[in-house]
Computed example of a mutant assay.
Amino acid sequence: MNFRQIEAFRAVILSGTVSRAAELMGVTQPNVSRLVGELEDAIGFALFDRVKGRLIPTPEAQAFFRDVDASFRGLDLLRSSAARIRDFGSGQLRVASLAAAGSTIVPRAITKFRQSYPTAIVTLSIMSSAAVRNHVVDGEFDIGLAADEVDLSGIDHQVFGSFPALCAIPPGHRLAAKKVIRPEDLHDVDYVALSPEDRARVQFEALCSAVQSKPNLVIETSFGITACALAIAGVGVAIVNPLAIDGFAERGLVLRPLEPAVYFKSYLLFRPDMQKARLVRAFVSALMEIRNTRPSVVQNT
């Protein structure tokens, strides 16, 4: 039993005649009859009764056809899948992101991306930068967005952006009256710090040390969004990634630039074992467009 024999059998069932089946398959009528006969020999039972030159499906043929037709529907699905991969890539995009961007810029990029690829399925997971790097390297995600403290060896990457840090100040705090915050302003001020390995934190604390300013560390958190939430709750002043501030200024959080500037640098990470698929390239383009058009920071007065 082979595929061509099955195809001939299905064509006869669907068309009702050998001549029409031959037209559908692009072969002669004797070829169709031969293929059907070979199939009957292979499976061991008759598929058609020959009545006055016509082929009438036997009950066994009708039962067999149900499975044959299901198999062909499966082939149609495979053809559709192949077409989607050819036209759009894999049809599924798996994205891992650091928290600062994962609830702000990445969702907007997904909205932009889906305008061009509405049928693509996107999986978005928020995790630490180290976890983003490891999951991308392991092939579990197609693209990652991570901070610059991650190990970039052995992974395809490109710079996503370098963003000047902001000082997040609780409403009513005495520093809210300042237009610019300097390291010396934070001496003995309650301070919400990011994780010790965060390079922006390292830059900021080095600037403080240079002018003998000693902020009062009260809490550490790995996520910029959490730092903003702690600041607006009055826990302390935080140094935050501007990608993480969406909605906080409208709720009353005071945001001020730092001088000298401290930068949050981030990278796009890609699986090292494969060339970038079309969906990945399209999503990177959407991310870059959103990055370039994001609104300027709102600064409360």
Rank of each mutant, 00 (worst) to 15 (best):
F248P: 13
G91Y: 09
M127Y: 10
R199G: 12
P171A: 05
L186K: 02
A147F: 13
F283R: 15
L77A: 13
N31W: 01
M1P: 07
I43P: 02
L39H: 02
D41L: 06
F48K: 04
S296K: 08
I239Q: 00
E7D: 06
L217P: 03
L255M: 06
C167D: 01
E250H: 07
G16T: 05
L287A: 03
D76S: 06
S71C: 07
Y263I: 01
A130F: 11
G234P: 10
G234Y: 05
V189P: 00
Y263K: 14
Q158N: 04
P164F: 04
F163R: 04
I6T: 09
A147G: 15
G26C: 11
V189E: 01
V192P: 02
S33F: 04
Q275R: 07
A147V: 15
V211L: 08
P30K: 06
F283V: 13
D246C: 06
V95K: 14
Q29E: 08
I225E: 05
F65K: 10
A176E: 07
R133Q: 12
D41T: 06
S213W: 09
D273H: 08
R199M: 08
G252W: 06
A200L: 00
G37A: 06
P183K: 07
A231W: 00
G26N: 14
E149P: 13
R4M: 03
E40R: 04
S222C: 11
I239P: 01
V211S: 12
P170E: 02
F72I: 06
A146I: 12
L124R: 04
M25D: 03
F163H: 05
E38I: 03
S125D: 09
I232V: 10
V159F: 15
V284H: 07
F3W: 01
S162T: 15
T301I: 10
R86H: 13
R182Y: 01
D87H: 11
G26R: 09
T221P: 05
A83S: 10
V32Q: 05
E40H: 02
G154W: 11
Q212D: 04
I143V: 07
A131P: 14
R256T: 00
E250F: 12
T123V: 05
G53W: 11
S90M: 08
V192N: 03
